[in-house]
Design a protein around this nucleic acid. Structure first.
Length: 564
RNA sequence: GUCCCAGUAGCUCAGUUGGAUUAGAGCAACGGAUUUCUAAUCCGUUGGCCGCAGGUUCGAGUCCUGCCUGGGACACCA
């Protein structure tokens, strides 16, 4: 289904490579010279559809001026670019500007409709097996805003990577083994006893929010029979396991509401029970990165650039959190994944070095394990940050946010920022169902197109076959050419987003494409009975725009409505 | 004290891994456009010492060093 298509920019690159080979054959460029020239869109369209710095990169190894090489390259490009390039120009310090042949643009436009929902997909990522872990919140309370951000980014990243042929599985790590889970169990237990009129205090550092009492009641009802004769310790354990299970279920539910579904939910407890924590320890020991000191067992993480060595097994014999985490990531590799990507919250920044160290100690390449930090989110209302206090139980959850502004808006706002930058979430703007809200702006473009297509169908207009190039006697208008050029950028946008693990470029791209469409719409009437040929061509054009908008919105996990 | 992230228009942010005498959007402000396929639209104007100072080279918002400011992290917690 994912046939390998050569997109427009790749065709241009291929022409450039051929031209450079020709220069080698002529002896202009020494055979051993290897350069990777950039082919990019110039800032100003007057400088061509694409421009390359190949001549500047070749200048030094060839010991010639960039301009001289550019002139020679130009001749080869003109010969090799038949049917793709209309014009080649040398400019500035040695740039070579490439102007597309109109027929190449038309072919690409046709390709959008032929490939339809597969337009933009590629296969360069085939063969990679990547495990993407994100959210992984402690199952002791509702998901917060940062989790929502991580969910949006992780889910879209998975979709984008898959579109490029990478095999991706999404995983959620359930911290059901540690102190937090225990503390949660005891908090639930206390709340239950309180509800029975007894004076049992919630433990210090325990969980206070309103949801705790509600969860305690549900747990008590579900496990009533077992609780009847349980000791305090047994009861706390029952509340721990039941409470965690219910929290995990609610996380799963809330995430599904947000359009995010995981392939795996991985329990920390199973690592301990199956002996994998010990196995990881033994592995590190065999490799010589373990030592004992003051009754604790340490990992020599400083060997791999960490600030200090880290305790794996505490002096009391209990494994530290990181011991299970090392075992967990070792497990991921053992399952056959060749790349691990984690998305963590901002408070785990300092944790990266030691985890990377542990994976290197286990023999993996440094960049086989990568961590993205989903930075802090400030909810803004009336220009002020919304006050939140976890301690007092006053905080806006992911579920609250989605209920408030809607799933599409929430996702788009999170995906409009680079992941590792702080984000001010403008609630007032998010709530507006007007043109100021960028989500609706993009969706409106899609709906507008659908509306025209409906009208066209009703009036008996013919939407030409996907593989038929519309014939035109008059040249395309500038607004038409601009939007066609934008269309052809989707493949490179997706490739960049996947390679850099930065999905936000896609959101910006869609907004820009919507702008190009709206501009076109204002100037060019699609259905014009005076000019049937042009109308048919424009119908094909807006159909292609519809496809690209829809593909992009799908990858963002956002709806593409037919009408608004 | 050490480390990480950020600092670009009044506000929120892009800037394609160093490229073009002209650094871009959105919002806000001001002025225009609709007998039309959806005005949830479009066009125009105003707005900048890219935190500061050096350095690297043909070329720096982008890379290096130092400093300033904001946020975060620095457990035998998870």
């Amino acid at each position: 289904m994912r046939s390998s298509t050569v997109y427009l920019r790749q065709r241009v690159k291929a022409v450039l490579n051929q031209a450079m080979e020709d220069l080698k054959a002529d002896g202009v460029v020494p055979a051993e010279v290897q350069v990777q020239p950039d082919v990019e869109h110039p800032t100003s369209p007057e400088h061509g559809d694409y421009a390359t710095n190949a001549a500047m990169k070749l200048a030094k190894p060839c010991r010639q001026s960039p301009k001289a090489i550019a002139e020679k390259l130009k001749i080869k490009l003109e010969a090799r670019g038949q049917g793709i390039l209309a014009r080649v120009e040398v400019a500035g310090p040695g740039f070579v500007n490439l102007y597309l042949h109109p027929s190449a643009l038309m072919q690409e436009l046709q390709s959008v409709r032929v490939r339809s929902e597969a337009y933009g997909t590629d296969a360069w990522g085939a063969g990679r097996r990547l495990l993407l872990e994100f959210v992984s919140a402690n199952p002791v309370g509702p998901l917060n805003i940062v989790s929502a951000r991580a969910a949006a980014v992780g889910d879209t990243l998975a979709r984008v990577l898959r579109s490029q042929g990478v095999h991706v599985e999404k995983e959620y790590y359930v911290n059901d083994a540690g102190n937090q889970a225990k503390l949660f169990g005891r908090s639930l237990y206390a709340r239950w006893r309180q509800s029975l009129g007894e004076d049992v205090p919630v433990p210090e550092e325990g969980y206070q929010g309103e949801y705790v009492a509600a969860c305690a009641a549900e747990c008590a009802q579900a496990r009533a029979a077992e609780l009847k004769n349980a000791s305090v310790e047994q009861a706390a354990e029952i509340f721990r396991s039941e409470g965690v299970a219910r929290m995990v279920a609610s996380h799963r539910h809330d995430l599904a509401e947000f359009g995010v579904e995981f392939d795996h939910w991985f329990s920390e407890l199973t690592l301990h029970e199956s002996g994998q924590v010990q196995a990881a320890l033994d592995d590190l020991k065999t490799r010589g990165y373990i030592f004992e000191h003051e009754g604790a067992i340490w990992f020599k993480s400083t060997e791999f650039g960490d600030d200090k060595d880290r305790v794996l097994i505490k002096a009391d014999g209990v494994p530290a959190y990181i011991a299970a985490d090392v075992a967990y990531h070792r497990n991921k590799f053992n399952r056959g994944f060749t790349e691990l990507v984690d998305i963590w919250g901002p408070d785990h920044h300092g944790y990266i070095a030691r985890m990377k160290a542990s994976m290197q100690a286990l023999g993996h390449e440094a960049d086989a394990f990568r961590v993205l930090i989903a930075q802090q989110v400030n909810l803004m209302e009336n220009g002020q940050p919304v006050a939140m206090s976890k301690r007092a139980g006053i905080f806006i959850t992911m579920a609250d946010l989605i209920k408030d502004v809607g799933r599409d808006v929430a996702r788009f706002f999170f995906l409009m920022r680079s992941t590792d930058a702080h984000l001010d979430f403008d609630l007032d703007l998010a709530r507006k169902h007007t043109d100021e809200n960028p989500v609706f702006y993009v969706q409106y473009a899609h709906a507008r197109i659908c509306s025209i297509l409906r009208k066209a169908a009703g009036e008996g207009w013919v939407l030409c076959e996907a593989n038929a190039t519309p014939e035109l006697t008059q040249p395309w208008a500038p607004e038409e050419l601009a939007v066609i050029r934008s269309l052809t950028s989707l493949p490179e946008i997706l490739e960049a987003a996947a390679r850099n693990l930065e999905p936000h470029g896609l959101a910006f791209y869609l907004r820009d494409l919507a702008t190009e469409f709206h501009r076109f719409y204002t100037v060019c009437r699609v259905l014009d009975s005076e000019d049937k040929k042009r109308s048919e061509a424009r119908l094909a054009l807006i159909d292609a725009i519809r496809i690209v908008l829809r593909n992009g919105l799908d990858l963002l996990g956002i709806g593409a409505p037919d009408s608004m």
